[in-house]
Write a protein that binds this DNA or RNA. Structure first.
Lengths: 251, 251
DNA sequence: ATCGGTCGATGATCTGAATCAAGGCCGGTG
DNA sequence: CACCGGCCTTGATTCAGATCATCGACCGAT
């Protein structure tokens, strides 16, 4: 880590302080009602959940919470994209995840949150006080079981990411990343083979354990190899998805 | 990845096939009763748990389960050390965790286990059928909550490991690793500043995303710097733990 | 005691990705 | 519409760690 790099890295922490608008939530009308942990609840459960949910808006670049903050809230992303960041004291950053509509936010803390959360785009969130949610579990065990399942899924995803960070080449990392986004897009009802990248290349670099230059070069190379095709500034097509999958060395 | 490396890597998969001895379990007499998810249960709960627990033994190098196996069992490690492995098709390996007495095994699968588990030393395990354990949850919510907490802890640990793999230098990785083991040793009632390493350097390399040569060289360097001191073939002292902590860039 | 295998240490060399450096593109703004 | 700043691209060079190659210590089996 050079001096210059440290300066640049410190500059990463120039986000707008936390601030957000709020409103009561109507879960019945929620756009992601079928996607996340509230999926498949019966009417009464939805109504109860609605009672403790608070709808929030965060503008692009706003901090939702910091690493180490008391972890007394959990969230559901209903619109936009969020990044989860960890920082070393000297400013190196690791992004441990990107959240998209339907994703759950706030698990994985012991004392405080294990990571900070920042809005990549304008973001709509549905917020729950953790203690109220846990109270709800007493009569709605289904909800608790679902949350446990989400924690399990995240754990499996984290393990995959460790394999990527520990053992994959830059090209394999990019291929894996694009395929993962494509799969999530499909789960959310989008078409396969098209991915939308709301984040900038610096975010991708910090997620994949690379530098922006390597990300840019590798994307250029994948384009030259016709494995990906950029349609707009934030959208890519994956025309030869099987080859990409092979490149990613999917275990 | 060179051809030679692939050959070597494939050789990693020369473990003895799964086989183990079993016996009924008496949780009252368990040596780690205060350490793990059964800690602090009342007599009746311990008795119930005892009823569905099966004590197992795995010899050194034996496979406990493979990545992708149906995840219908969970375990508690009571003696010995276990490694969790993920492999790429061409044989590169990432170890996603080491388990020691008191640690829980088997979370983090979607369909099957997200990783394989192998005995590093001779291992004693306490095995539970997942469905029976879940049945138990209905009347023992405490147990379920504790398991959820374990999943949360593992998630936080996984995030820390991502930061390590994505952004730390070799020296920082080793320092972090040794400190983590030291902390776990203390939790298990051992003294701080002394760590026991049951695994070989190849395992450490595959856990930290390095090669065996780099691990060996870095350990040599830490010894020269008098930050660690090797007492026996598997035991180290950390005489200047604060300096080591600084080196590890603890966030 | 002798072998054979595993494990760890260390030197020499190579290389993938980082770093350093310079421009280019584009969208927003005065 | 010209300027500015954020973001991306690409070339040149460096470097941390990988790879390749030995060697020695240890240990269990014969």
């Amino acid at each position: 880590m050079t001096t210059k790099a440290v300066e640049l890295a410190k500059a990463k922490v120039k986000l707008t302080p936390r601030r957000a608008s709020c409103a009561a939530q109507d879960c019945h009308a929620c756009e992601i009602r079928d996607l996340t942990f509230c999926a498949g609840l019966d009417e009464s459960e939805i109504a109860t959940l609605s009672g403790i949910a608070l709808r929030m808006h965060f503008a692009k670049r706003r901090v939702i919470f910091h690493e180490g903050d008391a972890a007394d809230m959990v969230y559901n992303v209903t619109q936009g994209a969020v990044r989860l960041c960890k920082l070393t004291p000297d400013g190196r950053r690791q992004i441990t995840g990107f959240l998209l509509p339907g994703d759950f936010l706030g698990l994985g803390g012991r004392q405080g949150y294990a990571y900070g959360a920042e809005a990549i785009t304008d973001v709509e969130l549905c917020r729950f006080r953790r203690d109220k949610l846990e109270k709800l579990f007493e009569n709605h065990r289904q909800l608790e079981r679902r949350l446990f399942k989400i924690a399990n899924d995240e754990l499996a995803i984290a393990q995959d990411q460790m394999l990527l960070l520990g053992r994959k080449t830059a090209k394999e990392r990019l291929a894996t990343f694009l395929l993962n986004l494509s799969e999530r897009e499909e789960l959310r009802g989008g078409q396969g083979g098209v991915v939308y990248l709301p984040m900038v290349q610096e975010d991708i670099a910090d997620y994949l354990g690379l530098t922006i230059e390597t990300v840019s070069r590798t994307i250029s190379q994948l384009k030259r190899d016709r494995l990906i095709h950029q349609t707009t500034s934030h959208e890519f097509e994956l025309p030869r998805i099987e080859e990409l999958r092979h490149l990613a060395e999917q275990t």
